[in-house]
Amino acid sequence: MTRPTRLDGNVLAGPLSEVFSVDLTAAARLCSVCGDEGVCAQLLVYADGPGLVARCPGCAVLVLRLVRTPHGVVLDLGGTGCVTIPLGEEP
């Protein structure tokens, strides 16, 4: 039997770079459901379905759905929680 493939959040870097100018996989994330703290690269990603589905490593809550269609990228960040994106030093 073929088993599902579960990856980490690094697999999101390429698809998200089509949408965002910063690397969200390096962003710190605080889960609004279980309080899990980590970086988005630590998310659990189910990638062998019709789209990418990312879940919290702490509580498995749905964090992100990303579908690449011929018409564009559909991105649901509804379960993201709070992310902190480093911007570097102010001039």
């Binding site: 039997m1 073929t2 589905v53 498995a60």
Partner: peptide, 10 residues
């Protein structure tokens, strides 16, 4: 074969 596609833990 019979591929397995999931959106979360089984």
């Amino acid at each position: 074969d019979f591929p397995v596609l999931s959106v979360g833990p089984t």
